[in-house]
């Protein structure tokens, strides 16, 4: 059995469904991200695990024990809040020591563990500082140390990096991942930032409107999005209308003047979803989707193209490898591997 199990977890406020029958199995030591736009129910889910919100239905099991019946103060979970939520009237060391005091850990051991925790997050020299005299990033580290020092069963992170500027956020992402690997704590991160979720997690839970859209490893969710929402939320994608027909052992896909053979058995009107960086340029051979380069933007390490085709506008990203690239108003053929194309029925069936 998995370490942390959310089973058919549900939260409604009157008629409004905040979280709808969410089921998730988390392995010991795993780093899971709940990813989605604001209002998708990710924070509500985290707060149900932490115990600050009572579920309307469903169960939460930690190592086989029912967590819902347990008081939030007895759950032994470490929580890091978006606002850091440090105790402003205590020094960094006192903040970190608070949880150990609650556990009645003896003075000597407490001091030792506080020192180690602050060192772990790189704040060895800041023990006696008050939060108001620290930068946002430093406060964030204190909050992390405070949550980790109690050796929590699960670490819950609620948008912990969203108040930091972009550069610091990137640094903290790397550090967070490193610390989590070192300590090995099972972690659930709530974020609306898809790159953050992909950078940090073992698996991503993409949520929308209170429902789970997909649970998968970052690369898999990106390469094979289960729903159009996931495809659109995790990076850019092209959505092209076409038709598919099963013929013999394979499926023939036709998109405007382009033709592909796919292994996915699907029939009728389809929508093909292709990532811009999976599309390559080729000559305008027969059976190839052709188009006219409308704009070409140089972005240093890559080119961004907008191509007008019979199937509509297609975005293409090509690495800047130094070789000559098509110019504006060139006629080009577009190719991609069938496996880089996610197919779904146009009427919404899967």
């Amino acid at each position: 059995m998995s370490f942390l199990v959310l089973r058919e977890l549900k939260k409604t406020y009157g008629d409004f469904v905040a979280v709808e029958a969410l089921s998730l199995d988390v392995q010991r030591g795993e780093f899971i991200s709940l990813l989605g736009p604001s209002g998708c129910g990710k924070t509500t889910t985290l707060q149900m695990v932490a115990g600050f919100v009572e579920p309307t239905g469903g169960a939460i099991l930690l190592d086989g024990h029912d967590l819902v019946a347990m008081k939030p103060s007895r759950r032994g979970l470490g929580v890091v809040f978006q606002s850091y939520a440090l105790f402003p009237h205590m020094t960094a060391a006192e903040n970190v020591a608070f949880g150990l005091e609650m556990q009645k850990v003896g003075r000597a051991e407490r001091d030792e563990r506080v020192r180690n925790a602050l060192e772990l997050v790189g704040l060895g020299g800041f023990a006696e500082r008050y939060p108001r005299r620290m930068s946002g990033g430093q406060q964030q580290r204190v909050a992390l140390a405070r949550a980790l020092v109690i050796r929590p069963h699960v670490l819950l992170l609620d948008e912990p990096l969203s108040n930091l500027d972009a550069k610091l956020r990137e640094e903290m992402q790397i550090e967070l991942r490193q610390i989590q690997r070192t300590v090995g704590t099972t972690t659930i991160l709530v974020t609306h930032d898809q790159s953050e979720a992909m950078a940090l997690s073992d698996r991503i839970v993409v949520m929308n409107g209170g429902r789970v859209e997909q649970i998968a490893a970052p690369q898999e969710a990106y390469e094979r999005p289960a729903t159009p929402f996931v495809a659109g939320f995790l990076g850019k994608t092209n959505e092209l209308s076409g038709t598919a027909r099963v013929e013999g052992g394979e499926t023939r896909v036709v998109i405007a003047d382009g033709r592909w053979a796919s292994r996915r058995p699907i029939d009728g009107a389809v929508i093909a979803s292709v990532r811009p960086e999976k599309i390559a340029f080729a000559d305008c051979a027969a059976g190839r989707l052709t188009g006219l380069v409308k704009t070409r933007i140089f972005q240093g390490n890559h080119w961004l193209y907008r191509i007008e085709t019979l199937a509509g506008q297609v975005f293409v990203i090509r690495q800047n490898g130094g070789e000559p690239m098509p110019a504006e108003n060139d006629k080009v053929g577009l190719t991609w591997r069938p496996e880089d194309m996610a197919l779904r029925a146009a009427d919404g069936r899967r």
Partner: peptide, 26 residues
């Protein structure tokens, strides 16, 4: 900020302890 009290709760503080150690000083 309610989160400050929630942080204390998550660290194992009872209601009375949260009031005495966190809410009241703030």
């Amino acid at each position: 900020d309610r989160a400050i009290e929630q942080a204390a709760v998550s660290l194992g503080a009872s209601d009375w302890t949260v009031f005495r150690r966190v809410t009241l000083p703030l």
